[in-house]
Amino acid sequence: MTTPRIAVLGAGYTGVSIAGLLAKRTGATVTVVNERDRFVERMRNHQLAAGRRQRHLSLRDLFDGTGIRLAVGRVTRIDTGERSVQLSGGVAPIDYDILVYALGSQAETDAVPGAAEHTYAIGVAERAGQLRERMRTAASVTVVGAGPTGLETVTDLAEAYPDRAVRLIARGMLGDYLSERARDHLHRVIDRLGVQVSENAAVVKADAGGLVLADGSRADADAVAWTAGFRVPGLARETGLAVDEQGRVVVDATLRSVSHPEIYAIGDAAAAHTGDGRVLRMGCGPGQLSAACAYHAITARLAGRTPAPLRVTNDALCVSLGRRDGILQPTDLDGRPRGRVITGRPVTALKRLVLSVNGRLTPRYPGLVVAGARQG
Score class of each variant (00 low, 15 high):
K24Q: 13
V357M: 15
D110F: 09
E199A: 13
I68R: 07
G247T: 07
S217R: 12
L59M: 09
S140N: 03
R231S: 13
D191N: 14
G240S: 12
G247N: 07
G326T: 08
R132L: 05
G335I: 09
G209T: 15
V370Q: 09
G175I: 01
A202H: 07
V33C: 14
A253Y: 05
L280I: 00
T137V: 15
G283W: 07
Y365F: 13
A170P: 09
Q86M: 10
T299N: 05
I6E: 08
A202E: 13
Y365I: 14
A71Q: 14
L211I: 12
L186Q: 11
W226S: 11
L168K: 10
A116E: 14
R323Y: 12
L302G: 07
L213V: 09
Y120L: 12
V212E: 14
H185G: 06
R324K: 10
R171Q: 12
G73K: 11
G335W: 01
T362I: 15
R364S: 03
P309Y: 07
V16A: 07
G114N: 08
P148F: 15
G172V: 06
R60E: 10
S17V: 00
M1Q: 09
G240M: 13
T137E: 13
D268M: 01
Y295N: 10
L103M: 15
G67N: 13
G15L: 06
A50H: 11
T306I: 08
R248A: 09
R127L: 09
Y365N: 08
V243E: 08
T142K: 03
A272M: 01
R311I: 01
A219R: 04
T313F: 00
A49Y: 12
R192C: 04
L211V: 13
G145H: 06
P148E: 01
D163Y: 00
V40M: 10
T299K: 13
D315P: 00
S259K: 03
E238R: 14
Y96G: 07
A19L: 11
V195D: 07
D325R: 09
H118G: 03
